[in-house]
Structures are given as structure tokens and as C-alpha cells.
Simulated scan of single mutants.
Amino acid sequence: MKRVHGPAFRAAQLDLAKCPVCRGRAVIKGVFHELACVQCSASGWVTADTGEALPLEVLVTQLSIRLQAAEQQIEQLKRPVPMFGPDAQYNENNRRGPGATNFTGD
């Protein structure tokens, strides 16, 4: 095992799983009303390997890491896909038509 002095330079992403008791809802059904889940500290997330609740400071960091990764993935999916082949040539402006507009040959 490596000796480590001080905190880590980067926060490592932990494997999280939905709480098996509340099924990720953070509340459990009581007799008359919903109660905060005690197993996951009302967060809906537990560690995947042990099933224990995370401390709130660690949980906030882990959820922030996951949110940033999800936002980055959404931004990548929003980018237009570059076209290749005849379709790209048909849709781009080739300035060969009247008034330097697109001429497709149709």
C-alpha cells in the first residue's frame, strides 16, 4: 500500500447504488405519511459494495461529480453530427446556383 500524506488531489468517483430499502426515493411509506429513509440518510444513494450510507460531505461531492458528467454527456449529444458523403454535398452551399445559391442538380 502506498503512503499518502494529506488529502487526495482529485476526488475519486465512488460506485453508488440506489438504496435497497427506499429504492432510491429517499422516503419510505409509513402508516399515515412518508418517513425519511434511515438506511441512506434520506438521500436515496448508498455505496455499491457495502450498502452503507455516505457521509453528507462525501455524498454531495459524489452527486456533483455525477451531475457534471451527465451534463457533459448531454452537451456532447446536442452537438450536430458532421455529415459525410453525398448527403453532405447535397446540403452544403456550393455557390453554383443563380445568385451564388446552392445548386443541387435536381
Rank of each mutant, 00 (worst) to 15 (best):
R25S: 15
L67Y: 10
F9Q: 15
R79V: 10
V46R: 05
V60M: 06
G6N: 05
P98Y: 12
D49K: 14
E92K: 14
R79K: 12
R3W: 07
Q76C: 03
V58W: 11
A69W: 04
C22G: 05
R25E: 13
G51H: 13
W45C: 00
Q62S: 06
G51P: 05
L59K: 12
G6K: 09
E75D: 13
F84M: 10
E34F: 08
V58P: 01
V4K: 03
N91S: 13
D87Y: 05
N93R: 13
C37N: 11
F103D: 14
R79F: 02
A88N: 10
R66T: 03
K2G: 06
G24L: 03
A11L: 13
F9S: 07
F9D: 14
P80S: 07
Q72L: 08
W45V: 02
D49N: 08
A11M: 13
Q68G: 00
G97F: 01
E71P: 03
P86H: 13
D49Q: 12
I28H: 01
L54V: 07
K78E: 15
G44H: 05
K2N: 02
V81N: 03
L59V: 03
V46M: 10
V38S: 14
Q89M: 12
R79A: 10
A8G: 02
L77S: 08
P20S: 06
A70N: 12
A12K: 09
N93A: 15
K18Q: 11
P55T: 06
H5S: 15
G30A: 08
Q13C: 07
Q13K: 15
G44I: 09
V81A: 11
L16Y: 03
P82C: 02
V58S: 08
E34G: 05
Q89R: 09
G85E: 10
V21F: 06
A88T: 00
V46A: 12
W45N: 00
K29S: 04
G44R: 01
C19T: 12
M83E: 14
P82D: 00
V31W: 10
D87F: 07
M1G: 14
Q68R: 09
A36N: 06
F32K: 13
D106R: 10
Q39P: 01
R95H: 09
P7Y: 04
Q73N: 10
M1K: 06
T104I: 09
I65E: 10
P7C: 06
A8Q: 07
T47P: 02
P82H: 00
N93T: 13
T101P: 07
G105A: 08
E71Y: 00
S64W: 13
L14R: 11
H33F: 14
N94P: 04
G24F: 00
K29W: 10
A48V: 04
E34K: 09
Q89S: 07
R23T: 02
G99F: 11
P20W: 08
G99W: 03
P98I: 14
V4A: 13
L63N: 01
V81I: 15
T104W: 06
D87K: 15
G44P: 02
V27M: 08
L77H: 09
V46I: 14
P86F: 11
R96L: 07
V31N: 05
A42H: 12
A17S: 09
C19E: 11
I65F: 04
